[in-house]
C-alpha cells in the first residue's frame, strides 16, 4: 500500500534554509589566529616589506618593550583619564538634558533644534576654540570629548524616554504616583535599554575624539604616542599603539556588556 502511494509521488522539499546565522566563539578566535598567521607568513617570506608593515613578532616585541619600560602606562593612564573624565561629563550633562527634552514641552523644541544644529559638527573642529577658552592643557581635551559625547547621549536619552510605553505612565498616574516616582521607577528603567545602547555609540565617539585631540596637542597619551611613532617611521611602535587602541575598545565594550547584563537582567 505505502509503496503504491510513493510510486509517482514527489517528496515535499524543505525550503526554509538559511537566514539564521549562529554564534561560534571558536570561529571568532580562529579568525584572529588565521589573519595573524597569514600576516606573519607574508612578513617572514618578504612578501610584506618590513617598512610598510612590521611583522606581528616585531609589533609584539615593540609592545613588550613599551610595557617593561613603563611608557605604555604613562601614555595609557593619561588617555584613560581624559577618556573617562570627558565621557562622564558629557554623559551626565547629556542624560540631564535628554530627560528634560523627553519630558517637558518647554524644553522639547529648543532642545531638539539646538541638538540638530550642533550634532553634525565634527567636534574636533572646535578643539582650537576650546584651546583658546580652556588653554592647551587637559580641560580643552575633556571639553572636546564631553561635547562629542553630549549630543548622541541627548538624542538617545530623549528617544528612550519617548519610547517608554505610555500605558505604564498612565498606570502610574492612575495610582496617583508623584511625578518624581514616575520618573525614577517607570521612565528611567523604561528608557534604560535605549540609554545603554547609546553608551556604545558615545564611548566609541569618545575614543575617536580622544586620539584626535591627543594628536593635535599632547605630550602623553596613546594618540600622541602613535603620532610620534609615525613621524619617526617607527611603524612597529605605531602598530603597537593601534593594537592598544583596539584592546581599549574591546575592554570598553566588554564593560558595557557587563553593565547591560547587570542593569537589564529583567530582560
Amino acid at each position: 500500500m505505502s509503496r503504491d502511494i510513493e510510486a509517482g509521488a514527489s517528496r515535499v522539499r524543505f525550503r526554509a534554509t538559511g537566514f539564521n546565522p549562529r554564534a561560534n566563539p571558536l570561529a571568532a578566535w580562529g579568525s584572529f589566529v588565521v589573519v595573524i598567521a597569514l600576516w606573519q607568513l607574508g612578513s617572514s617570506t618578504g612578501f610584506i616589506s618590513e617598512l610598510a608593515m612590521p611583522s606581528p613578532v616585531a609589533v609584539a616585541s615593540a609592545l613588550w618593550k613599551l610595557i617593561i619600560s613603563g611608557d605604555l602606562w604613562r601614555h595609557l593612564s593619561a588617555s584613560l583619564q581624559r577618556l573617562f573624565g570627558g565621557w562622564i561629563i558629557g554623559t551626565v550633562a547629556g542624560l540631564a538634558v535628554g530627560f528634560l527634552v523627553g519630558m517637558f514641552s518647554w524644553a522639547r523644541s529648543p532642545g531638539v533644534a539646538m541638538v540638530s544644529a550642533l550634532f553634525p559638527i565634527p567636534k574636533i573642529a572646535l578643539l582650537p576654540l576650546f584651546i583658546i577658552w580652556f588653554g592647551i592643557g587637559e580641560p580643552s581635551k575633556f571639553a572636546t570629548i564631553a561635547f562629542g559625547v553630549f549630543f548622541p547621549t541627548v538624542i538617545n536619552t530623549f528617544g528612550g524616554v519617548d519610547n517608554v510605553a505610555r500605558n505604564l505612565i498612565r498606570m502610574g498616574q492612575s495610582f496617583d504616583m508623584p511625578m518624581m516616582s514616575i520618573v525614577r521607577k517607570i521612565i528611567l528603567p523604561g528608557a534604560l535599554p535605549t540609554i545603554l545602547s547609546g553608551f556604545r555609540i558615545s564611548s566609541s565617539i569618545a575614543i575617536i575624539l580622544l586620539i584626535a585631540a591627543e594628536m593635535i596637542g599632547a605630550q602623553y597619551g596613546i594618540g600622541a604616542f602613535i603620532l610620534a611613532a609615525g613621524n619617526l617611521y617607527q611603524t612597529d611602535q605605531l602598530i603597537a599603539g593601534v593594537v592598544v587602541l583596539s584592546l581599549l575598545g574591546l575592554c570598553v565594550s566588554w564593560l558595557l556588556g557587563r553593565l547591560d547584563r547587570w542593569l537589564l537582567a529583567w530582560r
Partner: peptide
C-alpha cells in the same frame, strides 16, 4: 494590557 512593569 495589564500595565505591569517588566523590570519588577
Amino acid at each position: 494590557d495589564f500595565a505591569l512593569l517588566p523590570w519588577r
